[in-house]
């Protein structure tokens, strides 16, 4: 049975209950290295302004996950079983080189420089295979995270999106329906949430192979669009800044 997680960002209050209940269990990573985290995205200008949250995490690409390809020591793999596309990192094998973070379209793996490991969501694969719900979905106090049979989850997402559109939120849609185990219900364009457009993962896959040749680079830039690349770079820069910040926090926590 293929399974999926739908995160309804129109319900999300950005509280971080998912983040802490995850870190309370998957506690080995350093201070500030989180498998899932909330980010806030503001749009518009005062007073016509709104903001949304997005639960950042590994999307669990159903096929050809770029991180698996990128890992030089084969530490990343699909979990065998029929849940469909759960990608996990073997902590013992991981050398913390950061390739997976660089190649991930979502920058999902968090690089734990203290432990020299990559850290990312495992979809609570052991729980899922045992018929349970991932911790974050269980924890969410407002019920923004739905987990279950992929078809049911998708249908529920589309139904919710329709209701929202009828209520005047013309942008409401389900993101990620083709490529990933994690789906979002959004009511703003994907770039607002630092997300590539629908189908991005698959197209990037073919591009990655072409990137090996010098000509491929040009092609990739053309295909992604200058704007897309800019977004990607911006995102990387921000993530780097953030990880620097986290390092300094972690350092202080150690000293204290």
């Amino acid at each position: 049975m293929k399974q999926a997680m739908l995160i309804d960002q129109t319900k999300c209050i950005g509280c971080g209950a998912c983040t802490v209940s995850c870190k309370a269990i998957y506690a080995r990573a350093s201070f500030g290295i989180l498998r899932t985290r909330m980010k806030k995205y503001e749009t518009g200008r005062f007073p016509h302004v709104s903001f949304r949250f997005r639960k950042h995490m590994c999307m669990h690409c159903i096929e050809n996950a770029p991180c698996i390809e990128a890992c030089p020591v084969n530490a990343i793999s699909y979990v065998s079983g029929d849940a469909g596309g759960m990608v996990i990192i073997d902590d013992d094998t991981c050398i913390g080189c950061g390739n997976c973070t660089r190649q991930c379209p979502y920058q999902a793996p968090d690089r734990d420089r203290d432990r020299k490991k990559a850290e990312k969501c495992s979809f609570c694969s052991r729980r899922v295979l045992a018929g349970q719900t991932p911790f974050c979905a269980e924890a969410c106090p407002v019920g923004a995270i739905t987990f279950g049979n992929r078809d049911d989850v998708l249908a529920e997402g589309r139904r919710r999106a329709e209701i929202l559109r009828a209520k005047g939120r013309s942008h409401a849609y389900v993101w990620g329906s083709a490529d990933t185990m994690v789906l979002y219900l959004l009511d703003q364009p994907p770039e607002i949430y630092e997300l590539p457009a629908e189908g991005y993962t698959a197209s990037r896959q073919t591009l990655l192979t072409r990137l090996a040749t010098p000509a491929g680079g040009v092609l990739a830039a053309a295909a992604l669009g200058a704007h897309g690349l800019h977004l990607l770079r911006e995102r990387r820069r921000r993530i780097e800044d953030e990880s620097k910040l986290q390092e300094s926090h972690a350092g202080r926590a150690d000293d204290g």
């Binding site: 509280c15 971080g16 209950a17 983040t19 802490v20 209940s21 309370a24 924890a139 969410c140």
Partner: peptide, 15 residues
């Protein structure tokens, strides 16, 4: 009150 959920602070209380 909680109907089966805690908030971010409640989940963190273990720490």
């Amino acid at each position: 009150v909680g109907r089966g959920k805690l908030c971010v602070k409640g989940y963190s209380a273990i720490k």
